[in-house]
């Protein structure tokens, strides 16, 4: 039970990190995700808060990018 609570807490913290990073994107840009649609950063942040499929995709992308940065994979191609 405690472990479940901690995991949930970590998940929420990760979401907050992703949201903080998305907030740095220029308001003048739009992000197209295939047939799902085009989004401004505020819309993506809303999707993350709602935890819907789009939000999950963005969290997955951002965390994969952060992990690759940590492991030095980003700059080594």
């Amino acid at each position: 039970m405690k472990e479940k609570f901690e995991n949930k807490e970590i998940e929420e913290e990760l979401k907050e990190i992703v949201i903080a990073r998305l907030n740095t994107i220029s308001p003048d840009k739009k992000i197209s995700i295939g047939s799902v649609g085009n989004f401004r950063k505020e819309e993506l942040i809303e999707r993350i808060k709602k935890n819907d499929e789009i939000g999950k995709k963005i969290v997955e992308l951002e965390l994969a990018f952060l992990r690759a940065q940590k492991e030095g994979l980003v700059y080594n191609g």
């Binding site: 739009k30 992000i31 197209s32 295939g34 995709k57 992308l61």
Partner: peptide
């Protein structure tokens, strides 16, 4: 996986 495109609406 998903292909992302970022663009400038203006």
């Amino acid at each position: 996986k998903d292909f992302f495109l970022v663009f400038e609406p203006e």
